[in-house]
């Protein structure tokens, strides 16, 4: 085809091709370098976060290795023979605490989210005040919730005493804003057209929420609840203030005033003791907690990816 062209045309075409080719070539070296440096910095940032986590896991695993064994789960703390001591009361305490948190946080958190998203008139100042406060509460340090729990739940108006249920209530207050925010996000992700479609059939607002909005937002809410629970599971500070401080060697009861413990609190207790055996136990406890938290968070991520609705 080219050979049939007159010489002038062929030359012109070749010239144009050369220009295009040079335009498509790599840009100046300095721009390229800037891009590479930035890319390297980003990698470094990611590596920093990852290395921190890996160092923590490896260090705890190495330090705690001598204590690994079933007795970590089946045995209680003991000052007489620390080699055989474990976390049983703390594990049971943490399970009770978390069950209590879920029981409290799911209905209250989801209810608040439904009110704020579906019923509240955003133009009214009190609703905007509630919204603003929920967002701020999510950022309040946990120790402050501990003080609140001590003043209002353990003592004061509720006067529950230093019982496990008071710990649950305190942790529930702590993670409630997170659950409300996550649930609102999940409700808001349901497009208005779904509500319109339902209402246009003559469904009431409650039927629409109950049968369309809630089912569609459950995966998002569940993700939020799991993340909130994993935060509650790792909290030690507020629990220290509301009664989990004792060195408990028996299985705790939800409403008994005999005392209770939780995983992070017992790890803290072990780590404070001078004997080396307890330090090892603390490291092993850290490994247990990390495994549980990673499992919970992975489950939350899986749940979100599996059931996320593409609108």
């Amino acid at each position: 085809m080219f050979s049939e062209m007159p010489e002038r045309t062929r030359l012109a075409t070749a010239g144009a091709q050369a220009t295009v080719a040079s335009n498509l070539q790599r840009q100046r070296g300095s721009e390229q370098l800037k891009g590479n440096i930035f890319f390297a910095l980003l990698l470094l940032a990611v590596a920093f976060a990852l290395i921190g986590l890996i160092a923590l896991i490896v260090q705890s695993a190495i330090k705690g290795a001598p204590a690994f064994g079933l007795n970590l789960i089946t045995e209680g703390p003991s000052t007489i023979n620390p080699e055989d001591a474990g976390f049983r009361p703390a594990i049971i305490g943490s399970i009770y605490l978390i069950l209590g948190v879920i029981l409290l946080v799911v209905p209250i958190g989801v209810g608040s989210a439904i009110y704020l998203e579906e019923y509240a008139d955003g133009t009214k100042w009190w609703n905007r005040l509630i919204e603003l406060n929920v967002q701020n509460l999510a950022g309040v340090p946990s120790i402050i919730y501990g003080i609140l729990g001590l003043a209002f739940i353990v003592r004061g108006p509720l006067d529950l005493g230093f019982i496990l249920a008071a710990g649950s209530l305190t942790l529930a207050l702590l993670v409630l804003p997170t659950v409300i925010l996550a649930s609102r996000e999940a409700i808001r992700a349901v497009p208005p057209s779904i509500r319109d479609g339902s209402l246009a059939l003559g469904a009431t607002q409650w039927q629409t929420i109950r049968r369309q909005v809630l089912p569609a937002s459950i995966p998002g809410m569940a993700t939020g609840v799991i993340l909130a629970v994993s935060r509650a599971l790792g909290e030690a500070a507020p629990l220290l203030l509301v009664g989990a401080a004792q060195f408990v060697t028996f299985n705790p009861q939800p409403f008994s005033a005999d005392g209770y413990s939780a995983m992070p609190v017992l790890i803290y207790n072990y780590a404070l003791r001078p004997q080396d055996e307890f330090r090892v136990l603390a490291a092993a406890g850290v490994v247990i907690m990390l495994i549980v938290l990673l499992l919970l968070n992975s489950f939350a991520v899986w749940l979100r990816n599996r059931y996320e609705q593409q609108w």
Binding site: P191, S193, I194, D196, G197, S198, L199, A200, L201, G202, A203, T204, Q212, A216, Q309
Partner: peptide, 19 residues
């Protein structure tokens, strides 16, 4: 209004089936 919408249905601009 709920009774009104039971008698007077609506089809929207963008198809909006329930999930």
């Amino acid at each position: 209004p709920v009774e009104v919408r039971k008698l007077i249905g609506m089809v929207f601009q963008k198809p909006n089936p329930f999930p």
